[in-house]
Each structure stands twice: as C-alpha cells, then as structure tokens.
Design a protein around this nucleic acid. Sequence first.
DNA 1: CCGGAATGTCAAAATATTAGACACAATGCT
DNA 2: AGCATTGTGTCTAATATTTTGACATTCCGG
Lengths: 175, 175
Amino acid sequence: MKTYGTILVIDDNEAILTALKYCLTEMFDRVITLSSPEGVLKLLGQETVALVLLDMNFSIGVNDGQDGLTWLRAIRKHHPDLPVVLMTAYGEVSLAVRGLKSGAADFITKPWDNDELVRKLKDVLDAQQDVATLDEVEAEHIRRAIDRCHGNLKLAAEQLGITRQTLYNKIKKLS
Amino acid sequence: MKTYGTILVIDDNEAILTALKYCLTEMFDRVITLSSPEGVLKLLGQETVALVLLDMNFSIGVNDGQDGLTWLRAIRKHHPDLPVVLMTAYGEVSLAVRGLKSGAADFITKPWDNDELVRKLKDVLDAQQDVATLDEVEAEHIRRAIDRCHGNLKLAAEQLGITRQTLYNKIKKLS
DNA sequence: CCGGAATGTCAAAATATTAGACACAATGCT
DNA sequence: AGCATTGTGTCTAATATTTTGACATTCCGG
C-alpha cells in the first residue's frame, strides 16, 4: 500500500543513497535522491514532497553536523509543515537532539535497521495527518458516547463527566 | 486470547445452550448457562460475570417478550454496569428496540451467525471498558500533541486549536 | 553580543459550565 | 386508568474557564 507520496533523501554517499532508495520504494510512490543539500530548496519549490530524510554530516572531516543543522533549519524555515527525519552516525545523539529542537520530526542512527526506519517514517507521516484539534477529538468522543448510550443524553453526559446541559450546548454547537 | 472473563447465557432451549456454549468458549474464560432466568440474580450475586446473553422468550406461547424485558430490567436494576445482550426471534425487532431502551447493550436475532455474535459481544465489552471521560480524552490528546511537538508548547497549542495560556492551565491541572 | 522566538505569568473581558429548577412527554408498574 | 419514575428541553444565577493582550525573562542561532 503505497500511499505515502514522495520522499526526498539527501546523503553524500552514493552507496547509502542506493541502499535507501531500494529500501524506501516499498512504501513511497517516488524516491528522489540528492547527493548534496545544495539544491534542496529549489527542488522543494518544484516538487511536492511528503517527507525529507536528511543526513547530517556533509563536510568531510567536519563532523559537528553544523552543516546538517543549518540545512535542516533552512528547510523548516521555508516549509514549516514538511517533516524532516535526520540520519546521524552512531554516537552523535546529542547532534540529533539538537536537530529535534530545531524541528526535526525524528532521527535515526547509521547503520540503520530497515524495518525500524520504515516504521519511524510511517509514524511520522501518520502523526502528520492527524492534526486533530481538541474540539474535533471532543466532538468525536461525544458522538461515540451518545451512540453507545443509544441516544440517552443523560447517561452519555454522566459517562463523559459533564452535565446534561453542557452536553446539550456542545451538541448544539456541533450541528 | 481469552481476556473477556465469564459470560452468562440464559435460554430455555437446551440445544441452543449447547451450541452457544461451544461457540463462546473461544473468547470467554468461562461460559455459565441457565435454562431459566429464575436464579439469575442469586447467581450474579455469587459469580463475577462480565456479560449476560439473555433470550427474550421464555413463556411458551407467550411471545410478547414481557418476561424477557422484566428480567432484563431486574438484572440492570441490581447490576447497572453489567452489559446485557439480548437474543430475540427473527422479526421481533420492536421487542429488541424496547430492550435497548431498557438498557440492553445490544441484541442479536435467532438464528444467529456465530462470527457476528462474537464480534458484537467483543464490541460491547471493548466499549464497556472505555468509559473515558471527556477530560481524560482531552488529557491524552494533549499529551500526544506535546510529545509530537517535542515539548514546543506554542506549536502544540496551535495544533490543538487553543491558546498557549490555556494549554498552560490545562497542563497545570493535569499535574 | 544582538535579535527573534518561546516561556512563564498576570489581569480584565468574554464565554462556558455548573447547580438548581420547572413543565412536559414517555414509559413502567399496579 | 392512575401514579411513579425517568428523560427531555429550557431557563436562570453563580462559578469557572478561556481568551486577549501585555510584560519581563530565558534560550539559542548568527
């Protein structure tokens, strides 16, 4: 069931890119790869991407990940709703945490486990779509409660922990 | 996975009782049967029963189901939280509806489909346990939203459709 | 070190919820 | 048929919550 759209993968290691492409075609309609983050903003302006998988270490020898963080922020600045998942080398958890604080959706360490990666990406995208507002959650719960009580509003209100009158008000607002 | 506890089945037809017992041992730890509702209240006082499956037509020739309704009400009077599922002959939907109004959790018509029966009973018991109050649902949703935003309360509040200050208040009350 | 963004907190105004009450309809019981 | 019970729909006044707007502070990136 490929319903997760397009993913953009950015890594400067061609071998990793190939491996990821192979692994990710299972769940994504399309896998776009970039071996450098340079053109990412332009590309995001042209393509509709559902998720970005971003490697953190590009500058060879410079492993503080500043580059990756900078790119992460640049992406999030122009596309605040686009989830970005980070890849960091094993042991660079502190870098990943800084990434999370800068708005990354999640991170994974290399070497990675394919199943875990896919699971995390799915979690991110699934969470992405349920932007349910408090009112919506409340409305849905109310509907179900009333349904379960066969329309008995008094009982439903009791189970919901509110007064019958308040339930009336909420129903009125919902309709 | 038998985690549904004990079910009490009441029907005056021994053959049906046997068939039901066979079918229900799949999902229940224990299946108690009664061929008459006479001793039901006493039994319920002794045993911990998770659900009652009650036939509606006991008085032979008298098919208005008044007996069944009376017993249903007696059970619900003494055990308001105990779900009761009704069995009625095909075509006696109006009787079942009256049963629902008297607090039955659901009903099924004879002859029944085993899979449908099991599904309905599971639905009833699953719904039974989630007596989640509105506040609880709200709290859970808030926790998840904050989690998803990595602790960014401003963002979480926006997604929840409330103000940041209100989110503070709610968090304060939760802790 | 500066600037922007999020935090923690406050007070007043606008809203929502509660408790208590009432008339009324539906239903069970005798 | 008559009475008791239970839920409905609606109303108030008292309480509680949410919003709005504000302010000083802290955190963090550049």
